[in-house]
Computed example of a mutant assay.
Amino acid sequence: MSSISDIIENYLIKSLKQTPSGTIQVKRSELARLFQCVPSQINYVISTRFTVEKGYIVESKRGGGGYIRIRKVSFPQQQDYYEMLLRMIGKRITQQAAADLITRLVDEELMTEREGRMIMKLISREVLDLPVSLRDSVRARIMRTVVTTLFANKGE
């Protein structure tokens, strides 16, 4: 059985796919009423499941006329996408941010689910048994290598 968070996420993703612009604008209170939950549940779903690593930009305005605008990011040029991914990874990346990025790469069919699962294991805390600052640096190096390899193979 799906959790309320899964249901809200699926509703928002479906709404995004149905709009030609790739952008939706919703009111937190209206979503909370629709799903019979508290507004903080909506905040949780948006902040954890609609991240930059997963390919979304979220804008939010609070207050009476407030809204949440969610946009799926797309890049017409592969080179621009590649450079953005490398910037996002940076010199350090947390396990969660890397996992979100891997999920995005699988969703966008740049890697297979099997490859994604293998890389998830390689970047895990259990495998990278190092102090946190060093672990996040090593993880970033691995992720930059993965992304570079994926994009190098796109031209073949």
Rank of each mutant, 00 (worst) to 15 (best):
Q41T: 13
R71V: 07
L85S: 08
R117T: 11
Q96D: 14
F50N: 01
K154P: 02
Q18C: 07
A140P: 09
T19R: 08
I57Q: 10
L85R: 06
R87G: 15
Q78V: 14
V138C: 01
Q36G: 04
P131K: 12
T148V: 04
L34K: 13
Q36D: 15
V26H: 01
K54W: 02
N153T: 12
S21Q: 06
A32G: 00
S137H: 10
Q96Y: 08
I13H: 00
N10G: 07
E53T: 10
E109I: 13
Q79N: 08
Y56C: 06
Y11H: 11
E59P: 03
G22F: 01
T103C: 09
Q36C: 06
S133Y: 10
G22A: 06
E30L: 10
G66K: 01
S29W: 05
K72D: 09
Q36S: 13
S5G: 07
F151Y: 12
I68M: 03
I8T: 05
R71D: 01
E59M: 04
K154M: 14
F50R: 00
R62N: 07
V58P: 09
D80V: 07
S74W: 14
P39E: 05
L134Y: 09
P39G: 02
S5F: 09
I13M: 06
S124F: 05
N43C: 01
S74F: 10
C37N: 06
V38E: 08
L85W: 11
T103M: 14
P131I: 06
K17T: 14
R87K: 13
Q18I: 03
V58G: 04
E156S: 09
E53G: 15
L134I: 13
T94C: 11
A97I: 02
K61P: 02
T103F: 12
I4R: 05
M143H: 03
G90F: 08
L85A: 04
Q77A: 11
L34P: 02
E109N: 15
S5D: 08
G55Q: 06
I142G: 00
S124L: 01
P76F: 12
R71Q: 14
D129H: 15
V127R: 10
D129C: 13
V132S: 13
R49I: 07
E30A: 13
E59Q: 12
T112K: 02
K72M: 11
Q78M: 12
G55S: 08
K54I: 08
F35R: 00
Q79V: 09
I13W: 00
M120C: 12
Q96W: 06
Y81W: 10
P76L: 15
E156N: 14
G116A: 07
D136Q: 13
V45S: 00
D80I: 02
S15M: 07
R92F: 14
I123N: 03
Y82A: 03
T19F: 03
S3W: 02
G64S: 04
E53S: 10
R139H: 04
S60N: 01
I102C: 05
Y11N: 01
